[in-house]
Design a protein around this nucleic acid. Structure first.
Length: 428
RNA sequence: GGAUGGGUGGCCGAGUCUGGUUGAAGGCGGUGGUCUCGAAAACCACUGUGGAGUAACCCUCCACCGGAGGUUCGAAUCCUCUCCCAUCCGCCA
């Protein structure tokens, strides 16, 4: 959420941000309502002042046992007038709030202006796509022939866009979660959080999933609970409506969670494999930092996520997202894209964003720079560190052998077990 | 699910029965000062947030005692609804 005063004083910047991000909200109506609100406030506050003054007089008179009938009658009218204008003010404010929630965050100045993925800028890359002496198989083919991924079974139990992992597949998923959590806690200084997977509406609003993206979320019928689309939601809201001491910053959390996404509007895309699921696992990094540090902290966050892929030996590239790909709440975003042999291209495996004070304002997360000084909003950042399902897919495809087996990288041995070769079992 | 007790400023904690200078006693913490070679202690002063007016972080006014309504000239205080917390009982992984 943007600051009301910021919008009032910089309408052209808001306009520009909406244009570049491809977002829409009624800025003109908003500014008109703002004027109306202020004129109403001037009126009603003068009346309230009168009411307060006279009410005090009435109290005084009553205490002395004198008659206050005349003032009482007079104030009855004033009270009615106040009630009317207050109602009007609230109506205007509700409308303003509704629009304010729909203004996107302002992109950083170094974010390239662009429309779609073709305008993203590659920042750097790591590793080389492996060369195969055979035609590499897609991960779902490998997974099925190895007996470690069973999509038909998931379809039978639940439906499309769900996966069932079996045997070594299930163990690999679990191993990756632990590998990433250990890396970020032991090497990168994050504190591990295991959050609730269901949150209420205020949390969803706090991080920006609501009200605008309601159709992307799963809501539990008959309750006010939503299945989290990412651990970002519970973990960022951990400090909702709090004032953090300045010396506590930066705060760095890492959390594993299952993630649930309706994937509305993604019909027909990535229908096969692990790439796009209604439920997937993810290890998420979340930071709360001082405003002056957030640009640097984003770079560090990206580096922490990259470390995962480097250790796993997966080729990837770092992309700086253009304005059109930034998303609603982010001011700047890098995507990590991992090489997928069967797709013959790079696919997103991590998304690292700086939200500046956009989420913090919505969620009321502040800090006190020094003891005794005024509280102001923190900056929040988060990024996948990284998506587990897509990592499994990438490992299967990149480490596949001519005979259809998969040889996992050494670094996973402590988590997966010493036998890193996944072979097809003859059983059925 | 049933019963009871609670939610007040950065924190603790009065006030609610008996509505009226109560933005809210007192304490802690914080800031500034006196004292001191310096520090501690003691003492003094200051110390919430948001909004409107304004060139303005001076000032004036308005709002805020979990949240939303209501009664009233006037609500932290009375009424209704709701959320959360604690304890006990029941149920349960």
């Amino acid at each position: 959420m943007l600051d009301l005063k910021f919008v009032r004083e910089n309408p052209q910047l808001v306009e520009e941000a909406m244009r570049n991000k491809g977002e829409e909200a009624d800025l003109e109506e908003f500014l008109r309502l703002d004027e109306k609100r202020r004129s109403l406030l001037a009126k009603v506050e003068a009346l309230k002042n009168k009411r307060n003054t006279v009410s005090r007089q009435i109290g005084e008179l009553k205490r002395k046992g004198q008659d206050a009938q005349e003032l009482l009658a007079q104030m009855k009218e004033v009270a009615e007038e106040i009630r009317l204008i207050d109602g009007a003010v609230r109506e205007v404010e509700d409308k303003m709030q509704a629009i304010l929630y729909y203004f996107p965050n302002i992109p950083d100045e170094d974010v390239p202006v662009g429309k779609d993925e073709n305008d993203n800028v590659q920042v750097r890359s790591f590793g080389r796509p492996p060369e195969f002496s055979f035609t590499p198989k897609a991960h779902w083919e490998l997974g099925e022939s190895l007996g470690i991924l069973d999509f038909p079974a998931a379809g039978k139990i639940t439906g499309t866009r769900f996966a069932l992992y079996r045997g070594a597949g299930a163990r690999l998923e679990r191993a990756l979660i632990n590998f990433m959590l250990d890396l970020h806690t032991k090497e990168h200084g994050y504190t591990e959080i295991f959050p609730p997977f269901l949150v209420h509406r205020h949390s969803m609003i706090g991080t920006g999933q609501l009200p605008k993206f309601a159709e992307d979320a799963f809501k539990v019928e008959g309750t006010d609970y939503y299945l989290i689309p990412t651990a970002e939601v519970p973990v960022t809201n951990l400090h909702r409506e709090e004032i953090l001491p300045g010396e506590a910053l930066p705060i760095k959390y890492v959390a594993y969670s299952a993630c649930f996404r309706a994937e509305a509007g993604a019909h027909g895309r990535d229908t096969r494999g692990l790439i796009r699921q209604h439920q997937f696992n993810k290890v998420e990094l979340v930071k709360f930092v001082k405003p002056e540090d957030s640009s640097r902290e984003l770079e560090l966050l990206v580096a922490d996520a990259e470390k995962v892929l480097q250790l796993l030996g997966l080729p990837y590239r770092v992309m700086l997202m253009c304005t059109g790909e930034l998303g609603f709440a982010a001011a700047k975003k890098y995507d990590l894209e991992v090489w997928m042999p069967a797709y013959n291209t790079y696919r997103e495996i991590s998304s690292c964003s700086n939200f500046r004070d956009f989420q913090a304002r919505r969620a009321g997360i502040r800090y006190r720079p020094d003891r005794g000084s005024k509280a102001s909003y923190v900056h929040t950042l988060n990024g996948s560190g990284v998506a587990i399902g897509r990592t499994v897919a990438a490992l299967l495809e990149n480490y596949q052998q001519p005979d259809g087996s998969v040889l996992l990288p050494e670094v996973l041995a402590p988590y997966f077990g010493d036998d890193l070769l996944i072979k097809a079992l003859s059983k059925r």
